[in-house]
Amino acid sequence: MSEMLRLENLTKRYGSLTALDNVSLSVESGRIVGLLGPNGSGKTTLIKILNGLLTPTAGSATICGLAPGVKTKELVAYLPDNSFLNTWMRVEQIVDFYADFYADFRPERAYEMLTALGISPKTRLKTLSKGNKEKVCLILVMSRNARLYVLDEPIAGVDPAARDYVISTIINNYNPEATVLISTHLIADIEQILDEVIFIHQGHILLQKTVDEIREENGKSVDALFREVFKW
């Protein structure tokens, strides 16, 4: 196992607001990691820095030793928290588009998942429901053979049956060379597939532990611990 992700004294300020405050952590390859925190805790800021969409105010983030940039975009498959598709396209066109764009994209994987979730390749994206659009986005991301998958709220908008499918897709797709970073607040649904969790709050890392460590030490699930730590 090698180091996949490293943050060193990472800080991001928006004017007077500090979204990330001197965050340091390291994540190895072959891990499925939950990035958990309440709204406004800094999850999406962190994810955007990893994807080169924001630049740090101070400190650094590296992926496989590289600073976020053109090179890391080849390694990172990113699912943003909002829809990123051209809605005039048909599903099959967007699959082609992705296949053109990413060398590691596997169209056959995408079609397999589309079939499993009952989405016709001929459908225009703008006629899809919100949940189905999210499924298409996730399918596109998971069809890449990436080193790091960064999923920002991948299951929030999909129905429970599809949620189960998404979760088994993540398990099935497991690869010791790759890491999956999932940001979510729907912890109960995914905690069993996580190796470790990172609790983030007001720009600080509260803890980084394995799920079994948390259950062992606290005698409760990650979900229950989260509710306790972030009680208002």
């Binding site: 072959g30 799920v211 079994d212």
Partner: peptide, 14 residues
């Protein structure tokens, strides 16, 4: 390992 992980809905490393 992977089949069992999918079946149980848990992490393959576990």
């Amino acid at each position: 390992v992977r089949e069992l992980a999918v079946k149980l809905g848990v992490n393959p490393n576990t």
